[in-house]
Amino acid sequence: MLNGLFSQQETEALKRTEDNIEKVKSFLENCISPNSLTDEVQEFFREVAALKGQSAEATLQEMMAGTRKYLEAINTEIEFKNDIPKDINKYVDKIEKLAAGIESCWDIFSGESRQYFRKIAYSFTEASSKCNGWQGLLIRFRLILPSLQKKEDVFSKYQKSFLIIPKAVAKAIELRKSKSTSKLWEKGQYLLNKATEIYNSEKGILLPYLKHWGRTPEEQLEKNKPAMAWAKARMEEIKREYNGENL
């Protein structure tokens, strides 16, 4: 994000959100539809869908896309020179993906993470002033060459990027003012805990690769017994070949 804008503590907070989103991404990508989920998780998607005026299926797909974008953004390195991104387009793409993840996955972030997003939204808003006055003129001057090379107004793109995350956070907060969402957040935390439980369990190592999704990890494993048996037999065959038993 912005070079030098965040402390080490805030950087660590961002890494914790990455860990949670990675688990949820793994969990969601194994969902065929909201109907394949537990009652609690189904209700979570229905409530979020109601807030957004869309279907539960669309909400599920949106959150899946949001988790992917968020992780892509976190893993995108940005180089800076004189506190300005060397590649404005790459930088803006990173910010847009972070914002998409924040907005679509707002209800599964912890209270600490949501407070962190409010803080960085405020920091971006405050930092946007650097594009005004003499500082803005200096930045515009430094971006003349990139603008000519890319044949677009790079300065304006950079200036607008400061409001992308604040707008996403404001939209997420405003959307939930229409009703009490304490229960919704509890259901979101249930989803996160369920994803963490599966992700951290020994079974969870195998679940992402199984074709059939069950309402519980046990049901999924039961449905996939034939595939697991084939995989076990194939691994044993490969092991025998490796040890020279078939030579």
Rank of each mutant, 00 (worst) to 15 (best):
M1N: 13
N3S: 13
G4S: 07
G4M: 07
F6P: 00
Q9T: 13
A13S: 15
E22N: 08
V24H: 00
V24F: 02
V24I: 15
K25H: 14
K25V: 06
F27Y: 15
E29T: 12
I32P: 03
S33M: 03
P34H: 10
D39Y: 10
V41F: 01
Q42E: 14
Q42Y: 05
K52D: 15
S55V: 09
E57V: 11
T59S: 08
T59I: 02
Q61R: 14
M63D: 02
R68E: 08
K69W: 05
L71D: 03
L71C: 07
E72N: 15
A73V: 09
A73S: 13
T76Q: 10
I78E: 02
E79A: 13
Y91W: 11
I95R: 02
E96A: 14
K97W: 02
I102M: 05
D107V: 12
F117H: 05
A121R: 05
A127T: 13
K130V: 13
K130M: 12
C131H: 05
C131G: 03
G133S: 14
W134Y: 12
G136P: 01
L137K: 10
R140M: 05
R142E: 06
L143E: 05
I144Q: 09
P146S: 12
S147V: 06
Q149C: 02
K151L: 07
V154P: 00
V154C: 01
F155A: 04
Q159V: 06
S161D: 09
F162T: 09
L163C: 00
I165A: 02
A170M: 06
K171I: 01
K171S: 12
A172H: 10
L175R: 15
R176T: 06
S180H: 07
T181N: 07
K183W: 04
K187C: 04
Q189R: 15
L191I: 08
N193R: 14
E197T: 14
N200V: 06
S201H: 06
G204H: 11
L206K: 11
L206G: 05
Y209W: 09
L210A: 10
W213A: 13
W213F: 11
G214L: 04
P217C: 07
E219Y: 02
K225Q: 15
K225L: 13
A227M: 10
M228A: 08
A229N: 13
K232W: 10
A233D: 12
R234Q: 11
E236V: 08
E237H: 12
E241C: 01
N246P: 02
N246R: 11
